[in-house]
């Protein structure tokens, strides 16, 4: 549409630039702090222009927090969560859409309703389950008398135990269930025409072959969109790893490491707060997901809007 609106155009740019300044300011200040020396960062008027200590501070923060192995851990866990979520979403939705059996709707709702139970609100009992992931089955067997029966017959005391604390499984497994992913895949599978299923069956393809050779190639855009969102989600996990991992030397995640960097009385022992290092570490930690969002912008937006979360 051709309209001449020079005043409004100017105002638009002013408003947008003002908004950008608000959005960029905190991170810019953090960046500037990360480029300064301990003395400079603690001198009263805040600096707005970077100094030359960035690399020194990055190196020191990196060594102090032992970021090397922690980045590998985080990358491993995030990849695990992404792969797990997409696989689970895909196979569950496939079973729900392409197989005919009773209770389909019930199972769909059972998964979908978990949306209402975010990890944060059920954190204490979920932690208790993670300490022994087989508790539910043990309890059920005890209550139903199966344990008693087994003991009476074979003399074996049933004591199931699977401790997930301080393990990759414990970090990944509770996070891979995905109501939104399943929903997204279900919506997509519902758009697959019946003729395609019939043709595949006529050609002698079983369900797994149909899934692998036809549906998965068709759902590549879905996968890219979901993967972007889920990677950011997994990388930024904080509360769960904070609780599950006490052995941070071996299983620590980078984001959790930030909790040790808060420069208060505890970490500095009443000394000068090491803001330059804390900010350098903050920058390092937030860089990978930001890079993903910027590089995969198209998929990211699509994923965000399609999953509604």
């Amino acid at each position: 549409m051709i309209e001449r609106t020079p005043v409004l155009n100017f105002a638009t740019h002013v408003i947008l630039i003002f908004g950008l300044v608000i959005i960029l300011l905190p991170i810019w200040l953090a960046f500037v702090a990360a480029t300064q020396t301990l003395q400079a960062v603690n001198s009263a008027p805040v600096e707005f222009w970077p100094s030359d200590q960035l690399l020194v501070n990055l190196a020191e923060a990196w060594a102090m927090s032992d970021f090397g192995p922690k980045f590998l851990n985080t990358l491993f866990v995030a990849t695990g969560v992404v792969v797990g979520k997409i696989t689970l979403a895909c196979i569950t939705a496939f079973a729900l859409v392409f197989f005919n059996f009773r209770g389909r709707v019930l199972i769909f709702w059972m998964i979908f309703i978990t949306l209402m139970l975010p990890l944060e609100v059920r954190i204490v009992p979920t932690y208790a389950v993670a300490a022994n992931a087989l508790t539910p089955f043990q309890t059920i067997m005890d209550w139903s008398g199966i344990s008693w029966l087994i003991k009476a017959v074979s003399g074996i005391e049933v004591a199931l135990e699977w401790n997930l604390l301080n393990s990759y499984t414990g970090l990944i497994l509770p996070l891979v269930a995905t109501a939104t992913g399943t929903f997204l895949y279900r919506q997509f599978f519902l758009t697959i025409p019946d003729e395609l299923v019939e043709a595949a069956r006529m050609d002698g393809a079983g369900p797994l072959r149909f899934l692998w050779d036809i549906l998965i190639p068709l759902s590549k855009t879905n996968i890219a969109a979901l993967a972007t969102i889920m990677f950011v989600y997994a990388w930024n996990q904080y509360l769960w790893p904070l609780l599950v991992i006490t052995d941070r030397a071996n299983y620590g995640m980078v984001v959790v490491q930030l909790s040790d960097l808060v420069p208060d009385q505890l970490t500095t022992g009443g000394g000068t707060p090491t803001w330059h290092l804390a900010m350098a570490a903050t920058l390092v930690v937030m860089l990978p997901p930001i890079a993903i969002v910027i590089l995969m912008q198209r998929w990211f937006i699509r994923g965000l809007i399609n999953t509604d979360k």
């Binding site: 200040l29 953090a30 984001v255 930030l258 900010m279 969002v293 910027i294 965000l304």
Partner: peptide, 18 residues
């Protein structure tokens, strides 16, 4: 768009400095 990708504790820490 990019601030979406910043982890909550990183936001907290950056703002603690600010």
């Amino acid at each position: 768009i990019w601030p979406y990708a910043v982890a909550a504790p990183a936001v907290g820490l950056a703002f603690q400095f600010v």
